[in-house]
């Protein structure tokens, strides 16, 4: 009866104290640990690639008349990091933040607001400004920026009109 207990005491002595003092001490975070993501609003385009990639719909897009909102809800995020992989601008950073406990679900939201470009012909808002600017810059090299900031529908109409004029002489 005594022998196993003695054995146990020896084992316990060898192991020492293993309990971590967590809230009063640093957490045990490994190199690979992924936590909440952070969206850098200054470089995000509002393209929505991350929304397509997100397996749990933690990232969503809310469209309204002249604004596109990229909404990140950490309460649904599974910390997979796919959004950071697909983001073309590198706006999404995976942080090591995991202390997210809260009483209000609202606290877990992060919203990036994008104003949309206004079409000079029909006045419709159609694409987030940073994305529009990027496309313009890319296409300006090819030399076709004339109708770039016109909405797709108006662009089609204008194109057709132009074509008719050309054909008709």
């Amino acid at each position: 009866m005594v022998k196993p207990i003695l054995k146990l005491i020896t084992v316990a002595k060898e192991a020492g104290v293993v309990t971590r003092k967590y809230p009063y001490d640093s957490p045990l975070l490994t190199e690979e640990f992924r936590g909440k993501i952070e969206i850098d609003a200054s470089i995000c385009w509002g393209c929505g690639a991350c929304v397509k990639a997100c397996p749990s719909n933690a990232l969503t897009i809310r469209e309204s008349m002249d604004v596109r909102e990229l909404v990140y809800f950490a309460g649904r995020c599974i910390f997979c990091g796919r959004c950071a992989d697909v983001c073309p601008t590198g706006a999404i950073k995976v942080t090591k933040e995991f202390e997210l406990a809260t009483e209000e679900l609202e606290d877990l939201e992060q919203v990036v607001i994008h104003r949309k470009v206004k079409c000079p012909i029909c006045g419709k808002h159609f694409v987030p400004q940073p994305l529009g600017r990027y496309v313009c810059e890319k296409c300006a090299k090819g030399g076709v920026p004339t109708y770039m900031m016109v909405c797709p529908e108006c662009r089609r109409k204008v194109g057709v009109k132009k074509m008719i004029r050309c054909k008709g002489g």
Binding site: S42, I43, C44, A74, T102, E109, Q110, R115
Partner: peptide
């Protein structure tokens, strides 16, 4: 105390 708070940011001008 809780740490997180709702963040609303406007996409920045370049």
């Amino acid at each position: 105390k809780k740490k997180v708070r709702k963040e609303v940011k406007e996409a920045g001008e370049r």
